[in-house]
Amino acid sequence: MPRIVDHDQRRAELTEAVWSLIREQGLAGVTIRNLSERSGWSSGAIRHYLPNREAILNFAAQQIGERAWQRLQAIPTSDDLFQDFLNRLEVTLPLDEEGRVWLEVWLAFVGAAVSDQDFADAQGVLYRDLNAVFVEAFSGFAQRGWLPASDPQAAATEIHALLDGLSVHLLLHQITPQQARTTLQVALSRMLIDPGSA
């Protein structure tokens, strides 16, 4: 009887191995040989899923977006619209080990994107996807009268830039997780005003 292969599990294993290489050696350290050594898979098994280095790097970049989306989707909702949105914003910051891992990988791709258009395009997709989530959220707040001083696109750009900056500061250990949370909450409180609280 043929063995049943869990492809999702195998992709998850590959993700962990590729990300581990990127975190330790940068994008230059990602080769099929290194990935084989790190994952314990044969080169042939890796090529079955990812035929070359370009495919490996594209896969690693794609997984950043998928992990970010999974983390966002896992946040429970309540009747407190402000707190729910704040919770979703916080989960994009490297406040725990999982968030730190994928943001370190993201930062490696961002560095490469400065001089490589392919990487720039890949990171642009991730940025646009996340930005679209923010625009949609701020559009909902605007319809409820919560966004008096800005429009949804401008608000999304502002909060996205703040998250990027806080993420880098956290990765460099220049601020504490609590400082990041407080900064984010204060900024969001300035942007969103519950009309029912006036």
Rank of each mutant, 00 (worst) to 15 (best):
I22L: 06
Q62P: 07
A17P: 10
I22A: 03
A55C: 07
N52D: 15
I46Q: 06
S20V: 00
Q63W: 06
I32V: 15
R23W: 06
S43N: 06
A17K: 05
A60P: 09
L57W: 03
S42I: 06
V18T: 14
Q62C: 08
S43Y: 00
R38K: 15
R67P: 00
A45F: 05
W41H: 07
L35P: 03
L57T: 06
G29P: 03
W69D: 12
A28T: 10
R53G: 10
G26S: 06
W19E: 07
S39V: 12
S43W: 00
S42L: 05
G29A: 09
T31H: 09
W19F: 05
E16F: 02
R38T: 15
E37A: 15
P51S: 10
I56P: 00
Q62D: 12
V30I: 11
A68L: 13
I32G: 02
A61R: 02
W69Y: 00
A68C: 10
L57K: 00
G44Y: 07
N52F: 09
H48A: 13
W69C: 00
L50I: 11
W19L: 04
S20M: 02
V18R: 00
G40L: 06
V18C: 13
L14H: 00
I56F: 01
T15K: 13
E54G: 11
G29N: 04
E66P: 02
E37Y: 15
S36H: 03
S39W: 02
E54Q: 14
S43T: 11
P51Y: 01
S43G: 15
Q63L: 07
R47D: 07
F59N: 08
I64G: 02
L14D: 05
S43R: 11
E54P: 06
E24S: 09
G65F: 05
G26Y: 04
G40H: 03
R47A: 09
I32L: 15
R38P: 14
L27E: 03
W69H: 03
T31R: 08
G40M: 06
